[in-house]
Amino acid sequence: MSSTPSRPAADRRTASRPARRRGRWRGYLYVLPALAVYLAFAVLPALHTAYLSLFEWDGVTLGRWVGLDNYREVFGDAVLRRSVLNALTLVVFFSFLPILLGLVTAGLLARYRRPGMAAYRFLFMLPQVVPLVAVGVTWRWLYGDDGLVNQALRTVGLDGVTRAWLGDFDAALIAVGLVGTWVLSGLCMMLFLSGVQKVDPSLYEAARLDGAGPVREFVSVTLPHLRGELAVAMTVTMVAALASFDIVYVTTNGGPGEQTTVPGLLVYRLAFSDGKVGLASALAVVLACLILVLVFVVNRLSRSEE
């Protein structure tokens, strides 16, 4: 952010020092508005949450300082631990499956240019544009007793498999996870498609001349070029899985039992229904740390392979 580079070198030797210093500070001035907004609406609330996590507070009356007790409870409480485990299970459905599906569709769509690509992209992107609450409500109907899922199963003679998917102890988490797969696959595909378009077409040509089939071509040419996009997709979808709230809240509200209870839901419930703002804050802090660690690992892995 320096304003000096365009000056002649001789001039710089005599007058550069104060000017450069002024320039440096001017640079920060440009950042200031964004920084102020970021501090006020992201950093301060985060610090406030961390601070509240050290209190036992019902949200109204005077809080009581309890130190790290809330964190002890987060790690000691079976339901809270269970919720973290559920969130990690959701990573499979929110992250791994969409990335796999995204790679496959991107590989299929990238190899040849066909008419109507824009329509495909629009269709696959659609779940991203629909509000998650609407997605949840729609899937609740689809998964219902007489919903489309069960109707389809009955049509093909699988009457024995039908059930109320969201009310079934064994199926609920998978059912919720698949909603996430549906939402995030399109996003992953879009990311990968845009990555594929950066690849020099001559590389594909060279591969084909060397006799590479579609699979070989994908593995040797396309995939290595998608490393950056993979890291982005991984980060975004993992955060979506671990911080999931809306889909779960709308479809199962954590049930049946605690089968689909996720940390995001518990934070909300503890703070607003149960009057345990301190414990909710502690859980939120732990969740944020977990997400940061995982995202850090993902980023390190994608970089070290380069």
């Binding site: 049930g255 039992g257 605690e258 209870t261 149960d274």
Partner: peptide, 20 residues
């Protein structure tokens, strides 16, 4: 208790499914 609703809801779901 304010937290009782959630405990009852998920608890009875487990009773109904014979999971507790």
């Amino acid at each position: 208790a304010p937290a009782m609703l959630d405990a009852l809801r998920s608890g009875v779901q487990k009773l109904i499914a014979g999971r507790v």
